[in-house]
Amino acid sequence: MNQWENSNRNLRAVEERIGYTFRNPSLLERALTRLACTLETGLPPEMHMDALATLGDAVINVAVVEAVVAEGVHDKGAITNRKMNLVNMSRLRALAEEIGLAEHVRWGKGEAAQRVWTSGRVLAECLEALIGAVYLDGGMEPAAEVLRRLGLIKRA
């Protein structure tokens, strides 16, 4: 079975794991598609996750700072330190691993052969893309709620 089969089932599995159902499932599909895959399969250039990962990075930072301030931290340095401790490649990668995100991403053939998700920042970027997709689909509060469910930020 190739990575394109059972696509709807894979999308539903991700939605169940993050506790969010997409109104526009194509955003989730895009968040799970690597640039290498789009190049290899001839998908339109806008169908890969890179822009969503950049957006998701910003959304995660806003959600974390908002949560830290809501906890009563008001010193700029303390906010920055808490954000740096909560949002880093290792932490985002671990969260992606906890929900089994790698098994749902559409990797390029070379990426799959090299198992690129096992090292570096790749899996963290996949989680960022997922959060970016949630943000575009539902807004800031659903994105923050997914981050709460994943344990990155505390409940308000």
Results as ranks from 00 to 15, higher is better:
residue 107 W to F: 14
residue 23 R to Q: 13
residue 95 L to D: 06
residue 35 L to I: 12
residue 26 S to K: 14
residue 87 V to C: 11
residue 10 N to A: 12
residue 121 R to I: 10
residue 119 S to R: 15
residue 4 W to T: 10
residue 132 G to D: 02
residue 99 I to Q: 09
residue 143 A to Y: 01
residue 125 E to K: 04
residue 27 L to H: 11
residue 145 E to W: 00
residue 141 E to W: 00
residue 25 P to M: 08
residue 3 Q to H: 04
residue 69 V to N: 09
residue 55 L to A: 11
residue 77 G to V: 06
residue 118 T to G: 14
residue 117 W to T: 01
residue 146 V to Y: 02
residue 96 A to S: 12
residue 119 S to F: 12
residue 101 L to W: 05
residue 32 L to V: 06
residue 37 C to E: 04
residue 106 R to S: 13
residue 120 G to A: 11
residue 35 L to Q: 15
residue 38 T to C: 15
residue 109 K to D: 12
residue 105 V to S: 06
residue 47 M to N: 10
residue 137 D to I: 00
residue 107 W to A: 02
residue 132 G to T: 07
residue 102 A to V: 01
residue 91 R to A: 07
residue 98 E to V: 00
residue 83 K to E: 07
residue 52 L to R: 05
residue 107 W to E: 01
residue 53 A to I: 01
residue 146 V to K: 03
residue 6 N to Q: 10
residue 28 L to F: 08
residue 16 E to G: 11
residue 4 W to S: 09
residue 85 N to R: 15
residue 28 L to K: 05
residue 70 A to L: 10
residue 64 V to H: 00
residue 47 M to E: 14
residue 31 A to M: 11
residue 140 M to I: 04
residue 96 A to M: 07
residue 100 G to K: 04
residue 128 E to N: 15
residue 125 E to V: 00
residue 100 G to E: 02
residue 27 L to Y: 14
residue 35 L to N: 14
residue 67 A to P: 05
residue 145 E to K: 05
residue 44 P to T: 12
residue 78 A to N: 06
residue 102 A to T: 00
residue 32 L to P: 03
residue 2 N to F: 06
residue 145 E to G: 02
residue 12 R to A: 14
residue 127 L to F: 08
residue 149 R to P: 03
residue 5 E to I: 03
residue 57 D to T: 14
residue 18 I to G: 02
residue 145 E to I: 00
residue 61 N to Y: 10
residue 93 R to V: 01
residue 139 G to D: 07
residue 79 I to M: 13
residue 56 G to L: 09
residue 146 V to N: 05
residue 65 V to R: 11
residue 14 V to Y: 06
residue 123 L to M: 11
residue 81 N to R: 15
residue 110 G to C: 00
residue 117 W to K: 02
residue 47 M to C: 12
residue 60 I to R: 08
residue 72 G to W: 06
residue 67 A to C: 12
residue 77 G to D: 13
residue 116 V to S: 13
residue 127 L to E: 04
residue 129 A to Q: 10
residue 24 N to E: 15
residue 67 A to M: 02
residue 146 V to F: 03
residue 41 T to C: 04
residue 36 A to L: 02
residue 137 D to H: 01
residue 123 L to F: 10
residue 56 G to F: 09
residue 122 V to R: 09
residue 92 L to K: 11
residue 127 L to S: 04
residue 92 L to I: 02
residue 44 P to H: 13
residue 20 Y to R: 01
residue 138 G to A: 05
residue 121 R to V: 10
residue 45 P to A: 12
residue 31 A to G: 14
residue 79 I to H: 03
residue 46 E to M: 06
residue 19 G to H: 06
residue 154 K to S: 15
residue 12 R to M: 11
residue 69 V to T: 15
residue 12 R to D: 13
residue 154 K to I: 01
residue 94 A to S: 13
residue 52 L to Y: 07
residue 99 I to C: 09
residue 33 T to D: 05
residue 42 G to S: 09
residue 108 G to N: 08
residue 127 L to Y: 04
residue 154 K to V: 11
residue 27 L to R: 13
